[in-house]
C-alpha cells in the first residue's frame, strides 16, 4: 500500500520541474523561490507518507505496557527482537506461514500474470485479426472494474466447482491483469519495431521464439512495471482471501493480521502481534521496490527520448 502510493509523490514534483524548464527558454536556472516551494511540497508529502511507517516501527520496538504510556513517535526500551521472537513463536509460527503464503500468492501470481499480460498485450499490438479492437476495449473495460467487485461472484463460481478454501481460489484470480495487458500493448507497439519481428521471422524464428528472445527483452521495463503492480496488488489483496479462505494455513498475511486485529478487544495481547506483524509484512514490498526500481526508471525514460 505504502509503496504503491509513494510513487506519484516522487513523480509529481519532477514532472513539474521538467515542465518549468521547458517553459523557461533562458536556461536551466530556477528561481530559488520555486525551488523552495517544490522542496516544501515534497517534504510535506514525504512526511505524510513516512510518519505512519515511523510510528509503526516505533510501536514495534515497544513492550505492550510501554506502548500506551510512552511517546508514540519516540523510542522507549528497545524490544523489537523480543517482539519478533514472540510473534514468530505464537501459535507455532503461523505468522511465518502467512508470510510464505503471501510470497507465494504474490510472487508466483505476479510472475504468471506478467507473462500472460505480456503475451496478450503483444498479440494485440503486433497481430492483425478481426475483433482485435473489440477485444482490447473489453480488456480496457476490465481495468475499470475493481477486483473487490468480482470477489463475491468469484466465490459463487468457485463454490460450484468446490474450489473455495483452496490455494487456487486466491491464486487463479490473481493471474488476471487487464491493466497489464493494456500497458504491455501500448509499450509493445511503441518499443518493439515491426522490422525487428520481420527480421526474426526471416531468420527462421517461430512466433513463440521471436516473442521470448526478441520482444520480451524489448518490453522488459514494461514487464517489470506490470510485475510490480501486480505483486503489490496481490500482496495487498484482502477482500478475495477474506471471502474465499477459511483454513488458517492458507491465509495471506493481510487476512491473518486482520483476523487477529478483530480479536483485540477480547484478547488484548494480540495487539502487539498485529503491530509487529504489520511492520514485518511491508518489508518485502520495500525490498522489491528498491531492487526493481532501477529497471523501472529505465523503462520510463526509454520511450521519451524519441
Amino acid at each position: 500500500m505504502s509503496a504503491l502510493t509513494e510513487t506519484p509523490v516522487v513523480a509529481r514534483p519532477s514532472r513539474r520541474v521538467t515542465r518549468r524548464t521547458e517553459n523557461a527558454p533562458k536556461g536551466p536556472k530556477e528561481s530559488p523561490l520555486s525551488r523552495v516551494g517544490a522542496m516544501t511540497v515534497m517534504l510535506v508529502f514525504t512526511l505524510y507518507f513516512l510518519i505512519p511507517i515511523w510510528w509503526l516501527f516505533i510501536a514495534g520496538t515497544k513492550s505492550s505496557s510501554q506502548f500506551t504510556s510512552t511517546n508514540p513517535l519516540w523510542f522507549a526500551d528497545f524490544n523489537l527482537f523480543a517482539n519478533i521472537g514472540n510473534l514468530v513463536a505464537y501459535r507455532d509460527g503461523v505468522f511465518l506461514k502467512w508470510m510464505l503464503n503471501s510470497a507465494l500468492y504474490a510472487g508466483a501470481g505476479a510472475l504468471l500474470a506478467t507473462l500472460f499480460a505480456a503475451m496478450c498485450g503483444y498479440a494485440l499490438a503486433k497481430y492483425r485479426f478481426p475483433g482485435r479492437e473489440l477485444l482490447f476495449n473489453i480488456v480496457l473495460g476490465g481495468v475499470l472494474v475493481p477486483a473487490t467487485a468480482l470477489a463475491l461472484p468469484l466465490f459463487l463460481i468457485f463454490s460450484q466447482v468446490s474450489l473455495t478454501n483452496t490455494f487456487w481460489a486466491v491464486f487463479l484470480p490473481s493471474l488476471v491483469s487487464p491493466f497489464g495487458v493494456y500497458l504491455t500493448r501500448i509499450f509493445a507497439s511503441a518499443s518493439v519495431p515491426d522490422e525487428l519481428i520481420e527480421a526474426a521471422r526471416l531468420d527462421g524464428a517461430g512466433e513463440v521464439r521471436t516473442f521470448f528472445t526478441v520482444s520480451v527483452k524489448l518490453m522488459f521495463p514494461a514487464l517489470v512495471t506490470v510485475f510490480l503492480f501486480q505483486f503489490v496488488a496481490i500482496w495487498n489483496n484482502f477482500f478475495l482471501p477474506l471471502i474465499m479462505l477459511r483454513d488458517e494455513t492458507l491465509f495471506p498475511v493481510t487476512l491473518g493480521l486482520y483476523a487477529w486485529n478483530s480479536q483485540v478487544n477480547q484478547i488484548p495481547e494480540l495487539r502487539g502481534y498485529v503491530l509487529i506483524g504489520a511492520l514485518l509484512s511491508i518489508i518485502p514490498l520495500i525490498i522489491l521496490f528498491l531492487l526493481l526500481q532501477r529497471f523501472w526508471r529505465n523503462g520510463l525514460s526509454a520511450g521519451s527520448v524519441k
Binding site: 466465490f155 463454490s159 471471502i243 483454513d247 488458517e248 483476523a259
Partner: peptide, 20 residues
C-alpha cells in the same frame, strides 16, 4: 476453520456460504 470475528466478515461469509 477460522477467520475474523463475526461482524468483521465471518457472518457475511456464512451468508455467502449458505447461499452457495
Amino acid at each position: 476453520q477460522t477467520g475474523p470475528n463475526g461482524n468483521g466478515g465471518t457472518y457475511a461469509n456464512f451468508f455467502n456460504q449458505l447461499e452457495a
